[in-house]
């Protein structure tokens, strides 16, 4: 599109029609920018308003007279109070432990399985690959009641290890699915060459597949991380004691208590809790988007 636009610019007087086409294109461009600015404002308003609120004192929030969209006396007290609050620190540590263990488990399980499913055709491998995709489509809200009973039977209710047990249902199917896609796109000549040179299957996986499919592994890891960090249904169902809560449910249930809402702290807590996925996104945006679109375009 830009190429043709440039061509039109070079010979504006040559054809009368080209000029009208050019002005049509320019209007389309202006219209596109107006729409984008408008939608960016709407899409970014809630997080920005949370930031505004988190910088206010409780007195300023309670004051109904002024404009709620500006901060008169900015303060970092809300953040400081949360960071020094041992309960909030506990939420954070719980989230980190659960997420790290779940991501590690997920990646090991899905890389091993995806390698076997993509390269070693065995009895039922096609059915299993389809089954993996179907389980990805099973939402957590369909399973949380039976899982509540199962986790309860194992004595893991109110424990972060109960979460570590059930989170793989959210992460493993999708990660396996996109890893199958990435592994399948590696040329067969590569493993044939390795086999002729006498490489064993584990060597082939570690020395060829993992390095070559590294972008896919990064995308899958990001997916597993964001999903386990943001998980909400399972912790709300399984955890009721504050000391075992991860961040999402901790912020929602512990800071919102009784009739008095400490909105400054709630918004500060929510922003702090949302920070790790946002940071990962900011630095690894391309992998993040590759992981998002991979579900429908790979495999």
């Amino acid at each position: 599109m830009s190429a043709t636009a440039a061509a039109n610019r070079d010979m504006p007087s040559l054809y009368g029609k080209a000029g009208s086409l050019r002005s049509e294109r320019r209007w389309a461009l202006i219209w596109a920018y107006i729409s984008l600015i408008f939608s960016a404002i709407i899409l970014l308003t809630p997080p920005v308003y949370m930031l505004i609120t988190s910088l206010k004192t409780s007195a300023e929030i309670a004051d109904q007279k002024g404009n709620p969209w500006i901060v008169r006396n900015p303060t970092l007290d809300n953040y400081w109070e949360l960071i020094t609050n041992s309960l909030f620190q506990g939420f954070f540590i719980n989230s980190v432990i659960v997420t790290v263990v779940v991501v590690a488990l997920t990646m090991v399980i899905s890389i091993l399985a995806a390698f076997a499913l993509a390269r070693m055709r065995f009895w039922g491998s096609q059915v299993l690959a389809t089954g993996v995709f179907l389980t990805y489509l099973v939402p957590d809200t369909l399973l949380f009641i039976p899982l509540y009973q199962i986790v309860g039977g194992l004595g893991l209710l109110n424990s972060i290890w109960g979460l570590v047990l059930v989170y793989p249902t959210l992460t493993v199917p999708f990660c396996t699915w996109i890893m199958i896609g990435y592994f399948a796109s590696i040329p067969k000549e590569l493993d044939e060459a390795a086999l002729i040179d006498g490489a064993t299957w584990p060597q082939m996986l570690l020395k060829i597949f993992v390095p070559v499919a590294l972008p896919g592994i990064i995308a899958a890891t990001i997916f597993a991380f964001t999903v386990s960090w943001a998980a909400f249904v399972y912790p709300t169902a399984f955890i009721t004691t504050p000391d075992q809560m991860p961040l999402t449910i901790g912020v929602v249930s512990q800071l919102v208590r009784g009739d008095v809402f400490v909105w400054g702290q709630i918004t500060a807590g929510a922003l702090l809790a949302a920070l790790p996925p946002v940071i990962v996104y900011a630095f690894l945006m391309d992998y993040y988007i590759a992981g998002l679109t991979a579900g429908a375009t790979k495999g």
Binding site: P47, T226, A230, F232, T248, V251, V252, V256, A270, V278
Partner: peptide
């Protein structure tokens, strides 16, 4: 990117 439970707050 923001966990929905938190942005809904």
């Amino acid at each position: 990117v923001i966990p929905p439970a938190l942005s809904t707050l």
